[in-house]
Computed example of a mutant assay.
Amino acid sequence: MSFTEMKELTKKNQEFIHIATNHLIQAGKSDAEIKELLEEIIPVILEKQKTGVTARSIYGAPSEWAASKTASPAESDQQPLNENPWLMWLDSSLLLLAIIGLVNGAMNSFGVGANYGIITLLLIGFGVGAGMYMMYHFVYRDQVKTGKRPSLLKALGFLVLATLAWSFVFFLAALIPSSINPTVTPTVAIILGAVAFGSRHLLKKKYNIRNAMQPMP
């Protein structure tokens, strides 16, 4: 790897190499090992960037590429986390539905807490789940890719927006007429929570879904 080759890289590709190098250093790779690894990919990046293809498009996030070069054989066999938006939203929604159902059912068994309707529970679970995915997508996704923490102002701004959106979801839930929103008994709420928890576990095991509420690996 020469200085000339680095200068020929676009700014985006230079940033990829810089971030990847930092991750390799943190992983304990020697200068010689890092040089050897980068010499394998820089010629490819230089060739591909002529057609507008970036290093990220070829190798994925720099942190993930570096991790693939430093992982143990057992870790290398692990599949990358699935970031399909619909699956991540479903994963968050099922987790929240499980928590709400189990907690609400347990509390109502002792005569405390509010009795929710079935549509209310589903609306809250999937509505707040969507908000959790939006927080990941707009705030924490870059942290996962590059290791850089989001700015405090950006995080607080989206948190305020998410809180307002969640409040609106609860407001809408309260407007649903009881004629189409039958009240859930404590037993049914607990069963619903258990089913949601079990379904999430099976989906996560099958599709290896990234948890939007725990963005850092």
Rank of each mutant, 00 (worst) to 15 (best):
V112K: 03
G157Q: 02
L87Q: 14
L9T: 03
L123Q: 10
I190Q: 04
P85D: 09
I99F: 10
A162T: 03
G198Q: 04
T4L: 04
D31H: 11
A130M: 15
I58M: 10
A32H: 12
D31G: 13
T51C: 02
A162Q: 01
T187P: 06
V188T: 06
G157W: 02
V103K: 05
M6W: 04
F170I: 15
W65D: 12
L152N: 12
F171H: 13
P150F: 00
L96Q: 06
G131W: 02
A32F: 11
A173S: 15
M88A: 13
S199K: 12
N181G: 05
G127K: 12
E47I: 04
S199M: 15
K35F: 12
L156A: 10
T21H: 07
I100V: 15
A27L: 03
K29R: 13
V112Q: 06
D31L: 14
N104W: 06
T21G: 03
V184Q: 01
L102N: 09
S178L: 05
I42M: 06
L192A: 15
Y116P: 04
V128Q: 10
Y116E: 12
V128G: 03
R56T: 15
L24V: 10
V184N: 01
F16C: 13
A189H: 04
L156H: 00
G105R: 14
G147H: 01
L156Q: 01
T10E: 06
I42T: 12
R210L: 04
I191G: 04
G105F: 07
L94F: 12
R149F: 02
A32P: 13
K50M: 07
M6G: 07
H137G: 00
L9R: 03
E33W: 03
G193R: 13
L81N: 06
G129H: 05
E5S: 08
W86G: 14
Y140N: 00
P186A: 06
A106T: 15
W65I: 14
H18Q: 14
L38A: 08
